[in-house]
Simulated scan of single mutants.
Amino acid sequence: MDDIDWNDRAFYDDGEWVTWTEIDEQLRYKEWGAKYPNAIRSMIPYFENLISLAESYHYETGLHLSVYGDIGELFGAITHGIRLNKTYAQGSDGRLGNDHVEVKTITPFKSKDVVVVDTSGNFNKLLVVKINEHFQVSGRMIERKELPKRSGRYLKVKWSDLPSPT
């Protein structure tokens, strides 16, 4: 006997059943694509699953998983089309065309909306991703040349000082 959930079947098309789950997924991908035309849509399920896992784990245990940096990078891939570098690649987290992009993530448990950037890295753009206490995710990108001048290797960047997305 087959394990078909007949309640999930929407209609029969071109010799196979199409499910409501598949339709919902296609609509979500279309929404992401409309909102973010450069989206790498294949990354959407990983992003959604990881943010859902982080949220449910936190609500269940009161603790946080060490996944927020990965969530930030996936968000950058989806929203801006950043091609991510290999894990632990030196200098930047990915590429956007010819630009190297550094991704920094503000986690939901941080008391201040600030990231620390190592300016010795090889990057042209900085994407700051913010995950709030409700696990909603947003991002702001800035050109490196627009960052404030500083003395020393490390620069603190406030979320409120970044340009709002247009």
Score class of each variant (00 low, 15 high):
Val117Asn: 06
His100Ser: 12
Val116Ser: 03
Leu84Phe: 04
Val101Gln: 05
Phe109Thr: 11
Asp118Ala: 03
Asp113Trp: 08
Thr107Glu: 10
Gln90Ser: 10
Lys110Pro: 00
Asp93Asn: 15
Arg95Cys: 10
Thr87Gly: 04
Tyr88Ile: 00
Asp93Met: 14
His80Asn: 02
His100Ala: 12
Thr105Asn: 11
Val115Arg: 01
Asp113Lys: 15
Thr119Ala: 03
Val117Arg: 05
Phe109Val: 04
Val114His: 08
Arg95Leu: 15
Ile78Gln: 12
Ser111Thr: 13
Val116Phe: 00
Thr79His: 08
Gly94Leu: 03
Ser92Thr: 01
Arg95Asn: 13
Gly76Lys: 08
Arg83Met: 12
Lys86Phe: 11
Lys112Met: 12
Phe75Glu: 11
Ile82Glu: 11
Val117Glu: 08
His100Arg: 12
Lys86Trp: 09
Ser111Trp: 10
Ala89Pro: 02
Gly76Glu: 07
Ala89Met: 06
Phe109Asn: 11
Thr105Ile: 12
Asp93Lys: 13
Lys86Arg: 14
Ile78Leu: 13
Asn98Leu: 07
Leu84Trp: 04
Gly91Ala: 04
Asp118Arg: 02
Ile106Phe: 02
Ser120Glu: 02
Lys86Pro: 00
Asp93Thr: 10
Gly81Glu: 06
Asp93Gln: 11
Gly97Trp: 07
Ala89Tyr: 07
Gln90Lys: 06
Asn85Gln: 13
Ala77Thr: 09
Ala77Tyr: 01
Thr79Pro: 12
Gly91Asn: 03
Thr107Gly: 10
Val117Pro: 14
His100Asp: 11
His80Glu: 06
His80Asp: 04
Gly76Leu: 01
Tyr88Glu: 01
Arg95Ile: 13
Pro108Lys: 04
Leu84Met: 07
Thr79Glu: 12
Ala89Ser: 14
Val101Glu: 06
Val116Arg: 02
Asn98Phe: 05
Asp113Ala: 14
Val114Glu: 14
His80Cys: 00
Val103Cys: 07
Gly81Pro: 07
Ser92Glu: 03
Val116Tyr: 00
Phe109Ser: 12
Phe109Gly: 11
Tyr88Trp: 09
Ile106Arg: 06
Val114Ile: 14
Arg95Ala: 13
Thr119Lys: 01
Lys112Glu: 15
Lys104Cys: 01
Gln90Glu: 07
Ser111Val: 11
Lys104Tyr: 01
